[in-house]
């Protein structure tokens, strides 16, 4: 048979593509459960890191997560709990959640070793090249940030990727407040030397990563603002006690 005839070439490519496609589909199906496990574990690590629980081995992640995350719920914009079944906030796909018109806002409640309660809020936004997301732990007063953890899909290594790699960046959020004199003023990410005009708390942006830093600022602003009702409710409860 002539190897360079058109029919041979077309048949050859067709068979090759079908074969390769079958093999890839099989590998994907076989490895999927293990991959999903890894991705879920990684998510748990990110959440735990927001409440300053240091990273641990994969075996410990699940039990540590169950130990510290005591409740999960979805709230509406007025701060009313609409769903509090187990794992409900963990399962939320933030990518679709931020787009929904009538958002159910996920909240993870954690109880630390010292007995204090922290509310962990997932945030999701856009960086320079792709999505960025994070987990913000807010103290029991409903105002002060206790800790934060940021991740990204494809920010530049050494520049934008430092929102994940450089612990100083996320740690700078600790102790910053979301409220000034009772009004919602989200902590901002400002270029070094600048300050927000509305008197809000701020942290320094990463040098060389202007757009990623701005993305983190916008993400915080947009996502945390929706929780205004929830935080206000906590604040009134605290005032009444």
């Amino acid at each position: 048979m002539n190897k360079n005839s058109n029919i041979y070439q077309i048949l050859y490519s067709a068979i090759m593509v079908v074969l390769v496609g079958t093999v890839l589909a099989f590998v994907y199906m076989a490895l999927k459960p293990k991959q999903d496990d890894n991705i879920a574990n990684d998510k748990r690590k990110q959440i735990l890191s927001a409440i300053h629980i240091p990273t641990m081995t994969d075996q410990q992640v699940k039990s540590t997560y169950q130990k510290y995350i005591t409740a999960e719920m979805l709230v509406d914009e007025q701060g009313n709990v609409v769903d509090s079944t187990a794992n409900v906030a963990f399962e939320v796909d933030m990518k679709n959640n931020v787009k929904a018109s009538d958002r159910k806002l996920p909240v993870l409640v954690s109880k630390l070793d010292d007995g204090t309660t922290k509310y962990i809020i997932p945030v999701y936004g856009a960086g320079l090249w792709g999505p960025i997301w994070g987990y913000i732990a807010v103290g029991a007063d409903g105002k002060t940030i206790y800790g934060a953890n940021f991740s990204h899909e494809s920010e530049t290594p050494g520049l934008g990727a430092r929102i994940t790699d450089d612990p100083d960046f996320a740690n700078a959020f600790s102790g910053k407040t979301l409220y000034k004199d009772g009004a919602f003023k989200c902590v901002e990410v400002m270029k070094k030397g600048q300050q927000p005009t509305n008197g809000a708390d701020y942290i320094d942006a990463l040098s060389g990563a202007t757009i990623t830093s701005r993305g983190v600022g916008n993400m915080m602003q947009q996502c945390m603002a929706l929780y205004d009702g929830f935080f206000k409710k906590i604040q009134t409860q605290n005032a009444n006690n």
């Binding site: 093999v23 890839l24 590998v27 994907y28 490895l31 293990k34 991959q35 890894n38 991705i39 574990n41 990684d42």
Partner: peptide, 13 residues
């Protein structure tokens, strides 16, 4: 390469 990548995601995330 895709197979290697899938294996890495499954075994060394």
């Amino acid at each position: 390469v895709i197979i290697v990548q899938q294996f890495l995601i499954a075994f060394d995330y």
